Amino acid sequence: MLLDGDLRLLAYNTAIKHNITIGMVYQSLYQLRVSGCPWQDADIVEALGCLGDYGLHNLSAVERIARISEVYPYSRVKGLLHRSYESLGINERDENGELIAQKLLWKENFYNRNERGEGHAP
C-alpha cells in the first residue's frame, strides 16, 4: 500500500509519462476505489497510464479496468489492457446476448446509498 505522498508522486509521474492528466488519474482512481476494484492503487494508476497511451481515458478506462479486474489480477494482464475483451478471455455478453454492465458504483449512487443508510460517503 502506498502512502499519500508516494501515490501523489506516482500519479504525477504517470501523467508526465503517459497521455493522461493528473485529474484523470485521481478521478478514475477514486471511482474504481468506490466501486471496489480489487487491484492495488499503484496498479490502477499504472493501468490508467497505459490505457491513456492507447487513447482510453476517463469512463472508457474506468469501465475497462473494472471489467478486467473482475476476472484477472493486474499482474496477469499488465501490458495487455488495451486488447479486446475476447482476446483476454472475457465475455462482453451474457447467454442472452445482452451486454454485461460493469459493476461500477457512481458517486451520485454512493451518496444516495448513504442517505438510505446503506453506505458511508467519503
Rank of each mutant, 00 (worst) to 15 (best):
V62Q: 05
E63N: 15
E63P: 03
R64A: 06
I65A: 10
I65D: 00
A66R: 04
A66W: 00
A66I: 11
A66E: 00
A66C: 03
R67E: 06
R67Q: 09
R67V: 12
I68Y: 04
I68N: 00
I68F: 12
S69H: 04
S69C: 06
S69M: 03
S69K: 03
E70Q: 14
E70S: 13
E70N: 14
V71Y: 09
V71T: 06
V71C: 08
V71R: 13
V71H: 14
Y72S: 09
Y72E: 03
Y72N: 11
P73N: 15
P73G: 14
Y74P: 01
R76G: 04
R76S: 15
R76I: 11
V77E: 08
G79A: 11
G79N: 10
L80A: 15
L80I: 07
L81E: 06
L81Q: 08
L81S: 03
L81A: 07
H82I: 07
H82L: 00
R83F: 10
R83N: 13
R83H: 08
S84D: 09
Y85E: 04
E86G: 05
S87L: 00
S87M: 07
S87Y: 01
L88M: 03
L88Q: 04
L88R: 03
L88E: 02
L88G: 10
L88H: 04
G89Q: 01
I90M: 10
I90K: 04
I90R: 05
I90T: 12
N91Q: 09
N91Y: 00
E92I: 00
E92A: 14
E92R: 12
